[in-house]
């Protein structure tokens, strides 16, 4: 199990000093050790993505971004 220390706040502290309700090694605090997959490679065309946006409308990323430079972020959750 990774380093975990119960902080005085009642939350769990990880090896980097970060705090969270989940004990390191559980829930989202299960981090890969060493190499882990990072998806399509640099130099490849970004795959097609069509997904529903917060307005409830489906969005085709390549069509929507047109010819703009783009940052595309995969993140954990807006809820927690």
């Amino acid at each position: 199990m990774p380093f975990a220390k119960l902080h005085e706040s009642g939350q769990w502290e990880d090896e980097y000093g970060g705090l969270g309700p989940a004990k390191p090694g559980l829930a989202s605090r299960q981090d890969p050790v060493g190499e882990f997959p990072t998806g399509p490679a640099i130099g490849e065309r970004f795959p097609d993505v069509i997904a529903t946006a917060q307005d409830g409308v489906a969005l085709d990323v390549h069509r929507h971004r047109a010819d703009r430079a783009t940052v595309f972020v995969f993140y954990r959750s807006a809820v927690w």
Partner: peptide, 14 residues
């Protein structure tokens, strides 16, 4: 996901 970000050029290349 394993969280991360991709940066694309105007052509859509990573």
């Amino acid at each position: 996901p394993f969280p991360g970000a991709y940066v694309l050029d105007a052509d859509g290349t990573i």
